[in-house]
């Protein structure tokens, strides 16, 4: 290995001053790539100084992560191949007096190979993606077995609506909150998004989920968080000058705790409406 390195070094020297810097830059790029690639096996807590994916907190998020890693491997392999050939060619075929380039115009077989191999990889990626996509967007859990919450984003806050005691929306006993979503752990939650003014996007990084809320139509997303925790909700679609502060909290309670919280809010609501009457 050392011998090889020294050969490489001596070659690099002979290449002259113009080829050394690009080789250096490529190495830097590769180093950055491998540094990033080393991340996923690291700890999975949501804290700590890491420049990598936030902890995946749902099963779907785990699926998306493995897809991400798959694509990272495939694309990295291609990048390494291209960079390796590039460096080799640039060094090997640099101009030398008395040598003449080969008059090669093409090679059908090569061209077919470098269309077929990427095509196969892309089909594999697309196939793998499609399953996760269906799970996220098409195979929704049944509403009767899930907790349904309506979120009505507006400039620049998340208005949250729970069905009240009657179990229906758009009635007087709806429970409302701002910028705060309380959900139970281990239960399917369907969030229906109805924007009140412009387009917003409901984004929880740890769920790897993002769904635009479009005024005039209802969009839906679902998630199931196995363990209690607190997450940040961010708006991911530019919605105006307060876009960056359109921040909410998503609190996942243990099921019993959630029931208690919900019962408390029901009582509060009942007291409030009794007051008003």
């Amino acid at each position: 290995m050392r011998a090889r390195l020294s050969i490489l070094r001596s070659r690099l020297h002979s290449v002259g001053r113009w080829a050394a810097p690009p080789a250096f830059a490529v190495l830097l790029l590769l180093a950055a790539g491998t540094r990033a690639g080393a991340g996923p096996v690291a700890d999975s807590s949501s804290h700590g100084h890491r420049w990598w994916l936030p902890a995946a907190s749902t099963a779907v998020a785990g699926r998306i992560d493995s897809l991400f890693i798959l694509i990272l491997w495939i694309t990295s392999a291609f990048l390494v191949l291209v960079v390796a050939l590039f460096v080799a060619f640039v060094i090997r075929y640099r101009h030398r007096e008395g040598r003449r380039a080969a008059h090669v115009t093409g090679n059908m077989l090569l061209e077919i190979v470098w269309m077929a191999v990427p095509a196969a990889c892309l089909i594999a990626i697309a196939y793998a993606s499609n399953g996760a996509w269906s799970a996220m967007k098409e195979e929704f859990p049944r509403e009767s077995e899930s907790l349904v919450i309506i979120v009505k984003p507006r400039q620049f806050q998340w208005d949250v609506v729970y069905a009240g005691a009657d179990g229906r929306f758009e009635t007087a006993d709806d429970i409302t909150a701002i910028n705060r979503l309380d959900v139970p752990a281990g239960r399917n939650v369907i969030v229906k998004l109805m924007a009140q003014d412009v387009i917003h996007s409901f984004f929880v990084p740890q769920f790897r989920m993002k769904q635009d809320a479009v005024p005039g139509m209802t969009t839906e997303m679902w998630f199931n968080v196995p363990a209690p925790g607190t997450f940040e909700i961010a708006c991911a679609e530019l919605c105006g000058l307060g876009h960056y502060r359109m921040q909410g909290r998503l609190i996942v309670h243990a099921p019993a705790e959630y029931d208690a919280w919900y019962a408390g809010r029901l009582r509060e609501k009942a007291a409030e409406s009794a007051n008003a009457r």
Partner: peptide
Amino acid sequence: PAPKSVRMEAD
């Protein structure tokens, strides 16, 4: 009318 409460925990 009864005063309406504001949930300022939003921020």
